[in-house]
């Protein structure tokens, strides 16, 4: 059968959906679960607007099948709640139109969690996966660094 039942665990809630096996995770999140935070920007793996976490790893959800993500924990932007990185993005004016923001935030969130000691090189390696057309990136850099710096204060 081309369509099938898929069990997805998104933001700690489990969902059972019927989708084409060829449907991408991005498509299913948006059109079946109504989680429109992850954005389509190219559907080709190039822009990062669709980034979500699968098993805590940033993934471009336009390049992963929904069925591949079955039974793995998925975090979308809707799953982040008042985190330091969200606040930092606001304080540092790290977005304008906001279209790249969900993808950028998810990636930056994973970065700050996994590499609290990230140096410039690591920050660049992670964040060059996302395109922002509105900001100069300097604002995003400041936001990420402010969160990393706070992590250190708390240590």
């Amino acid at each position: 059968m081309i369509k099938c039942e898929i069990l997805l665990t998104v933001n700690e809630e489990s969902h059972s959906i019927i989708a084409r096996q060829a449907d991408t995770l991005l498509f299913v999140l948006r059109n079946q679960l109504g989680l429109t935070g992850a954005k389509p920007g190219c559907l080709n793996g190039d822009c990062g607007a669709c980034t979500v976490l699968v098993d805590k790893t940033p993934i471009k959800s336009c390049m992963m099948l929904a069925i591949e993500a079955a039974e793995k924990p998925i975090t979308t932007i809707e799953g982040l709640c008042d985190t330091p990185i969200q606040r930092a993005f606001i304080e540092q004016f790290a977005f304008q139109c906001g279209y790249c923001t969900p993808g950028f935030l998810i990636n930056a969130y994973a970065l700050t969690k996994q590499h609290p000691d990230a140096d410039d090189e690591t920050i660049q390696e992670w964040l060059e996966s996302n395109i922002c057309r509105c900001t100069s990136y300097q604002e995003i850099e400041q936001a990420v660094k402010s969160v990393l710096a706070k992590k250190h204060e708390n240590d």
Binding site: T36, A38, K39, T76, I90
Partner: peptide
Amino acid sequence: KVTGRAKYTHD
């Protein structure tokens, strides 16, 4: 915009 609630046309 930081919580994914912001809606654009295709949403």
